[in-house]
Design a protein around this nucleic acid. Structure first.
Lengths: 129, 129
DNA sequence: TGTTTGTATTATTATAAGTAATACAAAAAG
DNA sequence: CTTTTTGTATTACTTATAATAATACAAACA
């Protein structure tokens, strides 16, 4: 999986890394059970510090996106829990985005078209038991 | 307009303030041409520093959401420019949100229902010339 | 002429980001 | 058992940002 970091971004490196891995999981570029690079390997590839990668991995682990074995390394979680209701944070973020889009003159139909295009790239399916 | 800040949030105060004003404009709670409180007044009401409010106002001004006269104070911009295409930042943020929603088990139809609910609260309409 | 407005300036404190150098425990391989 | 590789914990340092504080200033209006 290709990861590109913007060093001049206002978004912290560990957060950029976390976000791209989340997107990678959702698009299917990172399959379930797939093994992620080691923190040392990824740090070397990206030219950043080991602890910065570790911070991203720890965050992903805490959020449930990946599972970490001491020796096996980091793997994509087999599946996420189906939340019956959208998380409040998701709703807040979405409200802000829609507010900005509205003020910029984007109407609902164009917004939904954009959403549909993005959804079409998401091949992630929770592994039902 | 009611503004509530979370002091223990990881989101900076000036950014929370900026976000809530943007949402207020989109929902119509803040009408176009409406005068915002002075930085001193708002700072006192919220119990925060004047410069923190000023930072939020400066950001909103820079983004085009409000117009500032030296004596008149801050007003909601009469209208925003209709951007023909969605801004890359909007698309990036939306992609991340949809990725997270997908992994959490939310499908496209439920997502669009949520979007529709939020859109229904947005009464902002650009003032066409 | 005052008063109120946003703003510029300077300083201080606290927190976060990023890097760096190690060290350690667990697990697999030899 | 020994070695190697894994994530992780620790400590330290530098830099940047957030927030507050106390002023001061120029523009605009009554």
């Amino acid at each position: 999986m290709l990861i590109s970091l913007q060093l001049d971004s206002e978004i912290p490196l560990y957060e950029q890394l976390r976000n791209q891995i989340v997107i990678g999981i959702a698009t299917g570029e990172l399959a379930a059970q797939e093994k992620l690079p080691t923190v040392r390997q990824l740090a070397e590839d990206l030219g950043i510090n080991t602890m910065t990668v570790n911070k991203a991995y720890s965050l992903l682990k805490q959020e449930g996106y990946i599972v970490i074995d001491r020796r096996q390394g980091a793997k994509v979680s087999p599946r996420m829990q189906d939340s019956l209701e959208p998380s409040p944070q998701l709703e807040e973020q979405l409200q802000l985005i829609i507010a900005q889009a509205t003020i910029q003159g984007m109407d609902q139909s164009r917004f939904q078209t954009l959403c549909a295009q993005i959804f079409n790239k998401m091949t992630y399916r929770p592994t039902h038991i």
